[in-house]
Structures are given as C-alpha cells and as structure tokens.
Nucleic acid binder design. Sequence first.
DNA 1: ATAGCTTCAGAATATAATTCTGTACCAAGC
DNA 2: GCTTGGTACAGAATTATATTCTGAAGCTAT
Lengths: 155, 155
Amino acid sequence: MKNERTIDEIDHSILEILQEKARVPNAEVARQVGMAPSAVLERIRKLEDRGFIEGYEVRLNPVEFDQGLAAFVHIRVLPHANGALAAKLTEVTGVQEVHQVAGEDGYLLKLRVADNVELGTILRDELMMLDGVESTRTSIVLNTIKETRKIDLNR
Amino acid sequence: MKNERTIDEIDHSILEILQEKARVPNAEVARQVGMAPSAVLERIRKLEDRGFIEGYEVRLNPVEFDQGLAAFVHIRVLPHANGALAAKLTEVTGVQEVHQVAGEDGYLLKLRVADNVELGTILRDELMMLDGVESTRTSIVLNTIKETRKIDLNR
DNA sequence: ATAGCTTCAGAATATAATTCTGTACCAAGC
DNA sequence: GCTTGGTACAGAATTATATTCTGAAGCTAT
C-alpha cells in the first residue's frame, strides 16, 4: 500500500505553482503539470486533508493600513513568571508573532505599528505593564529586504 | 470627487472576511456585507489595483516539509561592509526574512530549517563565510505561540 | 489470477466569476 | 437649477471554473 504521508514530484510541482500564485485556476495548474483538472483537484484536496496545505491567505499592504513600521522585541522574563504571560503577549497591539526562545529565557515578538510614537506607547503602556516582564530590547526594522513564507520544497 | 486612496467600512468588512479565509466565494462575501456579488467583486478588484491587497498565498505546514525548527539570527556587520551582503543573506538556505535593523547596525534573519544540525551547518558554512559578517547571535524558537500576518483594520 | 485500492481522464453537472446594462447618486461647472 | 461626468450599485446574462461521477488502468498482496 502506498504511504499516505509522502508527496511525489507532481505534488511538488503543484505546490510550487500554488506558492507562486495561490489564485491560479485549477485548469491552469493541470495544464502545467500535464494532468486533467479533476486529478489535480483531487491531489490538492488530499494535500489539504493531510495537513500539508494549512490554508489560503490574503496578503495586505501594511503601509496602506498605517502599519509601515516593523519591530522585533526581545522580552526577558522574570524567574517564576506567570505562565499566562505568553497569552497576554499575543493580545498586545500590533503583535503579529510571539515566539518562546531558548538562550534568553524569554520571548521574541514581531510587531507592526504605524510609527515610532506608537511603538513607544505600546512598549511603555502595554508591554512593560505585564506581570513577569523583566526587560525588553527592541530592534527597529529600517528596511525589509526579504519577507516570505514560501518553503523551499527542493531539499 | 471621491478620494481614491481611502477605504470605507464596506471595504473593511470585505478585507476582514478575506483575512479570515481567503478562499471564500464572492457571493458569500456579498451576502455577508449585504451587497450584490458584482459590486463586491468590483471593490475587491479596486483594492487589488490600488495596492491594498498585495496578493494571495497558500500557507504550507513547515513540519511536513522538514522545516519544523524556526530560528532568528542577529548579524552584526563589520564597518565598511560590502553593500552586497544583504542580497547574499536572502540566498542563504532556509532564510525566510531579512531585515536591516537599527541599533545593532546589522541584520535580523528569520530561518526555517529541519533541526539543530542543519541550523549549525548553515551558520558555520554559509553565514559565517559571508564577507562583512562580524558576528552572529542566534535565538532558537522553542515554541511559536502566535504567527500571523493579519492586519488589525480597526485602528 | 483476482480482490481491493488508488489514480487518473473525460464527460456531465453544479457553482462561481465576470461582464454587461441601466439606474441612482453625487459633485463640479455653467 | 440644469447639465455633464464620474462612481457605485443591482440584477440579468454570459462565461469560466470547480466539482462530481463513471469507468478504465495500474499496482499490490494474497
């Protein structure tokens, strides 16, 4: 019996096409991989069912929505800090990512905000107010050279 | 004449629906916002044309593609470093993001790799080999609590 | 060999996107 | 106040696309 947890070259091709442009018609994908649309659709459905494909997203332009400034904030946590801190961090204004990191015994946040003023306000009035936060170190992004979620399928 | 660079409450609603689930049928969006499908489509096209919507993406499950480990790498750059460094960084294996950051005079990278072994290899054989790199500091992600690109439209 | 399973193509069908047309609305200029 | 030009919208008509269905082919284990 075929292993249901592997993907073959055709799946690879399909996913590469979808990673380039998620809104390409099925028939077009089928043409590119040389199969019938129905077969391609069946494969995509299976990739979804098996969890290889998690979902489909729209990507908005942050600048147009007053979120032109990105920043990373390292948060050092006090010993014996409340476990609820992580959940609180996800609720902070502008926070898009919360990662628990090793080495620093803390969290790394990615934020999108309007400008330095808003960032300062958030740091002062929201982050520093949370129980368990010992200190923060902020890296302001001057320029984003690359930002993608694409996964390199060829390795 | 109406300002072509603003979006109204209806656009907001549409974008919120799309941010929840990018693959919702037009007619369903229309129903939710109480308009005709043709009108909704017209609005979406304009949002695309004006650059508010940058594109549509498929989100793959990194774990299934042997990229279960995330890491952030701060790179400190030597004075007078070659300007080509940034471009080189984007080509490094597993690199999804490259941000030029203030304060540290360097770059912040986000990587997705299979495991610690691969991460070590990349740091040693790829990153440290690049001209202009003075030092690196790596934060290994133990647990990602939140990771989204959604933009809060209500501010 | 053959039963059981998967994959696929191609046709048939269902659903959705897109185009088209006319109307209403609003603002600017006369 | 009237007209012109532009935008937004609904609803119908059309086109494109997705989905379902069926049968055939291939593969594997027995």
